[in-house]
């Protein structure tokens, strides 16, 4: 079960590239496990370290100022590619609670919402404002569905109401689905051949 999440106030890490895919977020060699924990070292493993396993000091997540950041700001179509939820587990295991981009991939968004990571699509101008203020501490507020930064900047974001409710209460969707077992059984009765 995830912790209830209502407000995140944190510095952020910037990965400006577009189309950052889930193979980068969690390379395939980290997928041969049957656990959903322990994905910390997988996060951007091939960007964080060179092929000899030495950390690249210039990679944004390796910089001292990235320590403790709970928000990632990335380029358009973040999380594209493979449906591996392991990518979200890797972010979560590194303390990331929100990803902000001018658009995120569909399956990634759904996976994020189920693991206490808020996927936030914001407009280009607000995205540019964040990129221009890399030192800022910003606030993600699920109550008001907004991101705000110092100097009065603010951007709203859309989030599906039930997913937001689940994030804010720290519950998952399973209970709601199980509560519909009578409707599901009725559907199965009338659609036996489909």
């Amino acid at each position: 079960m995830n912790q209830p999440l209502r407000r995140i106030e944190s510095s952020f890490v910037i990965l400006p590239a577009e189309n950052i895919d889930t193979d980068q977020i969690c390379p395939a060699r980290f997928l041969t496990t049957t656990s959903r924990d322990g994905f910390g070292p997988a996060l951007f493993a091939d960007w964080r370290s060179d092929q000899q396993g030495q950390p690249r000091p210039d990679f944004p997540l390796n910089r001292p100022e990235a320590q403790g950041a709970r928000i990632l700001v990335a380029g358009r179509n973040f999380g594209c590619g493979s449906s591996r939820e392991h990518a979200v587990w890797a972010l979560r295991d590194n303390g990331i609670q929100a990803v902000i981009a001018p658009g995120l991939a569909d399956i990634f968004k759904r996976n994020a919402l189920k693991n206490g990571v808020v996927p936030i699509a914001i407009d280009e101008a607000s995205h540019a404002a964040l990129l221009a203020n890399p030192e800022a501490s910003i606030v993600v507020d699920l109550e008001t569905r907004s991101v705000s930064w110092p100097g009065g900047g603010e951007a709203g974001f859309a989030i599906e109401p039930f997913a937001r409710h689940c994030l804010m209460e720290g519950i998952d969707e399973m209970g709601f689905l199980l509560g519909q077992s009578a409707s599901i059984a009725a559907y199965e009765q009338t659609h036996a051949k489909a």
């Binding site: 449906s83 399956i107 759904r110 996976n111 189920k114 693991n115 998952d172 399973m174 689905l177 077992s181």
Partner: peptide, 13 residues
């Protein structure tokens, strides 16, 4: 395609 949480939802419901 779906993630592993949703694989669980489909298993159960």
């Amino acid at each position: 395609g779906i993630g592993t949480s949703e694989v669980g939802h489909v298993f159960a419901t």
